[in-house]
Design a protein around this nucleic acid. Sequence first.
DNA 1: TAATATTTAATTGTGTGCAACCATATAACC
DNA 2: GGTTATATGGTTGCACACAATTAAATATTA
Lengths: 156, 156
Amino acid sequence: MVPTSNSPLAGLPDDVLLNLDQQLCFALYSASLSMTKVYKPLLAQLKLTYPQYLVLLVLWEQDALTVNALGQRLFLDSGTLTPLLKRLEKLDFISKKRALDDERRVIVTLTSAGKKLRDQALQVPIQVSCNTGCSLPEMQSLHHQLIKLRASLGKH
Amino acid sequence: MVPTSNSPLAGLPDDVLLNLDQQLCFALYSASLSMTKVYKPLLAQLKLTYPQYLVLLVLWEQDALTVNALGQRLFLDSGTLTPLLKRLEKLDFISKKRALDDERRVIVTLTSAGKKLRDQALQVPIQVSCNTGCSLPEMQSLHHQLIKLRASLGKH
DNA sequence: TAATATTTAATTGTGTGCAACCATATAACC
DNA sequence: GGTTATATGGTTGCACACAATTAAATATTA
């Protein structure tokens, strides 16, 4: 249990503390779900779900990563990634093989179809940015604050 | 397909467009998951999951709502809420009954145990706010931007 | 009033997200 | 060499999220 005397919320009345529309967590949660809903139809054209798209973003930057390395980059664990990677493999966007030097590790590699998909994916962030209702500086400000928040939350 | 000539991202180079660490969507997604992870152990003490907690926040504000009304408030649909509400009913935090005037509607009502839980829940946002690493003005700024973003995304 | 449309919740199926546990492989130590 | 500890990925079980469909009740209209 953390001491709560230095809470930014200390002293606020009960009805404010538990008011849904004043919860940062809910604004975050519902905005994230709304964002995924905007991506969904765009990614469906590439036969991808949103988390699958994130995996490919990582691999397009750096190919041939272990499951663990992917998980660290995306803040996801193997229980999430293993079935997701199976589906990407079935779609022939990635392939998996054991590392030669350490057979516990599974190396995930893009197939040629997976590499080619990047060209189509370029349109996705462009399309989405038109739906955010934010200017570039607004997006950058929000982005910066979210990364700071994620870092703070991740320490606990 | 939306015209993309007025995209805030128009003209940016490929490697920036698809760079994971520059995606607002990923900052949002990963920050939201991090937030849920902070709530998880606190809510476990109340035998609640995070979405169940959100449902109770709504009911503590206004009791006796239909499934549809809960869904509108939380941006969730009945496919999510129906099984969730069953679990809350099994925990004896809510009860369900058909509306007398329109038997299609299911009215969700807090039980006495559900009402009592609010006292314990008051500590949850206090605890969490200590982990955000944000001051109250920072939290409010972020909160405001997220709600604006959610509204823009929801229109599409 | 009978037929049709609409509203509402439940159901089903797919795909995450994650904790807990397990199996295996490597490393470290004696 | 043999024992133990650690690292890594897989498996299982539970709980969302949501699209698509179904079923039932109500409202509307011909």
